[in-house]
Deep mutational scan, measured.
Amino acid sequence: KNAAQIVDEALNQGITLFVADNRLQYETSRDNIPEELLNEWKYYRQDLIDFLQQLD
């Protein structure tokens, strides 16, 4: 998997990933985040941060 796929997957589930103060953050109206997504975000944290910062 790559960062773009993970960001896309999150968006499809109503979750927006973004970077604030060099930390990976998310916004969602969901009550909870599936644990497998959280684990994936932790595992790919630096890739996601790098990818999202390139988009800014």
Rank of each mutant, 00 (worst) to 15 (best):
Arg30His: 08
Leu24Val: 06
Arg45Asn: 11
Arg23Glu: 15
Tyr26Ser: 03
Asp56Ile: 12
Leu38Trp: 07
Leu37Thr: 06
Ile49Cys: 06
Gln46His: 09
Ala10Ser: 04
Lys1Ala: 04
Asp8Asn: 14
Thr16Gly: 04
Tyr44Gly: 02
Asn32Asp: 14
Ile33Tyr: 02
Asn32Ser: 14
Val19Tyr: 14
Leu17Thr: 02
Glu36His: 11
Ile49Trp: 04
Asn2Arg: 11
Asn12Gln: 15
Tyr44Asn: 05
Ala4Trp: 11
Lys1Gln: 04
Phe18Asn: 03
Gln53Ile: 14
Glu35Arg: 08
Glu9Gln: 06
Ile49Pro: 00
Gln25Phe: 15
Asp47Thr: 12
Gln5Arg: 11
Ile6Glu: 00
Asp56Cys: 11
Ala10Trp: 04
Ile6Ser: 01
Asp56Met: 13
Pro34Met: 03
Pro34Thr: 10
Leu11Gln: 09
Leu11Val: 07
Ile49Lys: 03
Gly14Gln: 05
Phe51Gln: 02
Asp21Ile: 04
Ile15Asp: 01
Tyr26Ala: 05
Gln5Leu: 09
Gln25Cys: 15
Glu9Cys: 05
Glu35Asn: 09
Asn2Ala: 10
Ala20Gln: 14
Leu52Arg: 00
Leu38Ile: 12
Leu17Cys: 05
Asp56Gln: 14
Gln46Gly: 06
Ile15Pro: 00
Thr28Ala: 07
Tyr43Arg: 13
Ala3Pro: 13
Asn39Arg: 12
Ile6Asn: 01
Ile49Phe: 06
Leu38His: 05
Pro34Tyr: 03
Asn39Thr: 10
Phe18Leu: 06
Phe51Thr: 02
Tyr44Pro: 01
Gly14Thr: 02
Arg30Glu: 07
Tyr44Val: 03
Asn12Ser: 14
Ala10Pro: 00
Arg23Gly: 10
Val19Asp: 01
Gln54Lys: 14
Gln13Tyr: 14
Asp50Tyr: 11
Leu52Asn: 00
Asn22Ala: 08
Asp47His: 09
Lys42Pro: 02
Tyr26Val: 05
Asp21Arg: 05
Ile6Lys: 01
Asn22Tyr: 07
Asp31Trp: 06
Gln13Asn: 10
Val7Arg: 04
Leu37Pro: 01
Ile33Trp: 03
Glu9Lys: 06
Asp21Glu: 08
Ala10Asp: 00
Ile33Pro: 05
Thr28Phe: 04
Phe18Ala: 05
Asp47Gly: 07
Glu40Gly: 03
Tyr26Leu: 03
Thr28Ile: 04
Asp8Lys: 15
Gln46Asp: 10
Val19Ala: 06
Asn39Leu: 13
Leu24Cys: 03
Tyr43His: 10
Asn12Phe: 11
Asn32Gly: 08
Gln25Val: 11
Ile15Ser: 01
Leu11Ala: 12
Val7Leu: 07
Leu17Gln: 01
Glu36Gln: 11
Ala4Tyr: 07
Thr28Ser: 10
Tyr26Lys: 01
Leu24Ala: 00
Val19Phe: 15
Ile49Gln: 04
Gly14His: 05
Thr16Pro: 02
Leu52Gln: 00
Lys42Asn: 14
Val7Thr: 04
